[in-house]
Nucleic acid binder design. Structure first.
Lengths: 233, 233
DNA sequence: CCCGTAGAAATTCCATGTATAATTGATTTC
DNA sequence: GAAATCAATTATACATGGAATTTCTACGGG
């Protein structure tokens, strides 16, 4: 018993160590605590996390496939991270393909799925009224990811999950933006109704609109940030 | 010298063993020689390829991130592969985002890039006249991948390369289809001219059309295949 | 003072050993 | 004869050792 109690990793259940190391590094890169340009040292990381070098190596190889680090043979891994241009690009890409996911979800909707999707939006509204920010964000994620899974395309789902993951931090921030959440929920409801009605065209149109609005919001947010930072970066 | 001469892997230059194993397995999965449902045995593969288990493990972790295998903790990796639905999905996804890549490429075109892109299409036409099928296919890949790189979006490029890679086999097959190559080259030229003119709208429109046509072609090809196989699969 | 170079330290890369979990198959029991 | 149990085999997961490569540092020549 007591599989691994030493270092930083004391986390979750059945997952392998490689996965946990991967997730921890990914989170660090995506939330900025591991900076772009930095390079990942196997031995150092393995000591910090209290695991051997093997799972760290595996995690780094995994990060490379996600394009979060660049791996130079015999030299190591440098962090790529997600900069502002990446963020804007991701939103642009989402406007193009997340609409497709909604379209497919609408075409493949069932009663059970209608119920679940509606419940998510209802819950989000409830949390909004109660001002539970953490849960609002959680429901926002869940709404989009549920649509990803309901589109029933392994490949599209996989791509969208990656994108979604990449911008998670900024989605949370935007909850705090004045007025955005209320609008977002209203937009979710429009998407929901279109999907439940099986109206692919409308579902796509509403989703494209929703993401464009989110993108507008991001741009405002980034401008605030850069003026706050005195034009740095 | 003579880094590794034993087993199946005698390949390339500076790449690490993990990468070579990864590429070999990826190729096998994508060209169907490793079937979906099959599961990958570390020891067996390492013996076949004449390497130790470590690089095989790393390669498998990499394949998981590409969604080409599913990894069940303590049980191993089962091949997912790319089935017909995946293929059709990939073409659908491409119609949505490859147009965006062309749009951005048009917005960021330079004289040097104009020259290179034009040369690729000219070469492809030349090889078509000469009936060099291998080179036609090569130029087809190069045309699209060059646009991916000219769109100057790390994230979009990465996604499109993955998709492109996934359908490589079918792109090659479609070269052999009667009349497709000639049309494809004509379509490439339309995309080329739009990009060179810096006309993002037109570049996107032509690209969407091009991929839709390729998709139509794929559907015909798949139908032929399934009737040839007597409705199996 | 700068540049090049040789040796040492650090780091990646691959191989192999060991523990733990899953699977198989034989044996027993009802 | 079927189901259950437990030992033996197999496979994965993680750790560790050692070879190869790169990076750092100190030294000597120009």
């Amino acid at each position: 018993m007591a599989k691994q109690e030493a270092g930083g990793i004391t986390a979750g259940a059945g997952d392998s160590l490689s996965n946990r190391v991967f997730e921890q590094l990914e989170e660090g890169i995506l939330d900025g605590s591991i900076q772009p340009g930095e390079n990942l040292n196997e031995l150092k990381l393995s000591l910090e996390m209290g695991v051997s070098r093997t799972p760290v190596r595996e995690a780094i190889r995994m990060l490379e496939q996600k394009n979060l680090v660049r791996l130079v043979p015999n030299k190591g891994a440098v962090v790529l991270g997600v900069d502002r241009k990446d963020l804007l690009d991701v939103y642009a890409i989402r406007t193009y393909i997340e609409g497709l996911a909604s379209r497919w979800a609408a075409e493949r909707i069932t009663d059970e799925k209608r119920g679940k999707l509606r419940e998510i939006v209802d819950l989000q509204e409830f949390y909004y009224i109660k001002s539970y920010e953490e849960q609002i964000s959680e429901m926002d994620s869940r709404f989009h990811e549920t649509i990803f899974s309901y589109c029933e395309s392994r490949r599209l789902e996989h791509m969208l999950r990656d994108l979604h993951h990449m911008i998670q931090r900024y989605r949370k921030q935007s909850i705090a933006e004045a007025g955005r959440t209320e609008k977002a929920i209203a937009e979710h409801r429009l998407i929901l109704e279109a999907i439940c009605a099986g109206d692919g065209d409308e579902a796509e149109r509403q989703t494209v609109g929703h993401i464009n609005n989110a993108r507008e919001n991001l741009i405002v947010l980034l401008e605030k940030e850069s003026s706050a930072n005195g034009e740095r970066e």
